[in-house]
Nucleic acid binder design. Sequence first.
DNA 1: GATGGTTTGTAACAGATTGCACAAACCGGG
DNA 2: CCCGGTTTGTGCAATCTGTTACAAACCATC
Lengths: 214, 214
Amino acid sequence: MSIPEVVIERLPEYARVLAQFESRGREVVSSQEIGDALRRPGRTSAAQVRKDLSYFGRFGKQGRGYNVRKLLEELRRILGLNRQWKMALVGTGRLGMAILGYEGFEPQGFRIVHAFDSDNEMIGKDAGGLTVRSTDEIEKVLARDPVDIGIVAVPAETAQDVINRLVKCGIRAILNYAPITARVPEGVELKPIDPVLHLQSMTYHLKARAGSAA
Amino acid sequence: MSIPEVVIERLPEYARVLAQFESRGREVVSSQEIGDALRRPGRTSAAQVRKDLSYFGRFGKQGRGYNVRKLLEELRRILGLNRQWKMALVGTGRLGMAILGYEGFEPQGFRIVHAFDSDNEMIGKDAGGLTVRSTDEIEKVLARDPVDIGIVAVPAETAQDVINRLVKCGIRAILNYAPITARVPEGVELKPIDPVLHLQSMTYHLKARAGSAA
DNA sequence: GATGGTTTGTAACAGATTGCACAAACCGGG
DNA sequence: CCCGGTTTGTGCAATCTGTTACAAACCATC
């Protein structure tokens, strides 16, 4: 039985709200409360939470709900979050440097351990505690010290090439910040991050209404 | 007839690949080629391209395909991309400054015209050409010079409050970089951007296989 | 230990999305 | 002007996703 990708993508959200509940001292929550924290309250979603969780086991108690700590632990286990994941960043321009400086990865167990750039001016310089290395060395460095995830923050023109090289190095998961629709072979995970695409789909809805600004 | 949101979200991708085709001098493309540029070739998707476009009209010619320039123009019109959209950024910390410096917005017609922060140290300082103003002034500034879209880059704790205030100011579209599942009233668009959620769903798939790194 | 008020887990249903298949339309060449 | 090779637009079928509804399980209280 294969589990739908949409379900997998909701699990981290569940984990996040559970962490919130835990930090507020809650010991037990209902699927209703989890659902309400995620979507507009009222709209059914409690059933979806229960159904999603039921793909993986029975974690709740009827008449009571879910033990927050226990369910959170289960989710972490399911998602593989109970370990450190090493990442390599390619591209240390403005965007890449911002990614290196982002404080949100480390607390969640994601650590950037290599930084690459093709610009000779950058190579050898310090970037967020790491020494920037030439992209020519990607294969060599990753062979010696493999990582789990690649982060691509190079210009659109070279992004697909970089992705191909990372895949060849055995990387099976890539976070792509470059504004291209990249392609990866079967078995490799690729998640695009492109704020512009989001903006462009929001304007569709905005356009329909009266424009607030000229 | 209401158009599915998934369809809307694919349109910007179509526009992007069309722009690529155009820059390469292509005058006509088939739905097959567009589909192949988006997903793994072979996997059907040409039909999806055609069906998505058919929600909005008939833009192609049988036996020939789509005129690249014309279709791109249509998509821009449909998405409302043939104008400038003004945005306000709240939060000028590390992440906010990186967003201000991102060169990808302007060429697509998105311009940040206001920057707000709650830190007194930041207020009055220059940030990417803009003067950072106090978050207390959000209402005043946006009343005088409204924007179409809000970008939220404040810490998780204050993000929902900021979003509520932006909504009260009449903003109908928000790009949320804060790691929370925010809620907005009916009729307001909210798109979350959280790389960590993507990482956490990718690790689900990685975990299944042999870990490459210890 | 029975009762009442909750809440889970899931089977059945409903709805949305995607894929298939083909007639109709089109182009270029002979 | 006809023919063969393409490609669109779209009804229909299949699949996937989300909702409803309810029996079974649970707790607290009496």
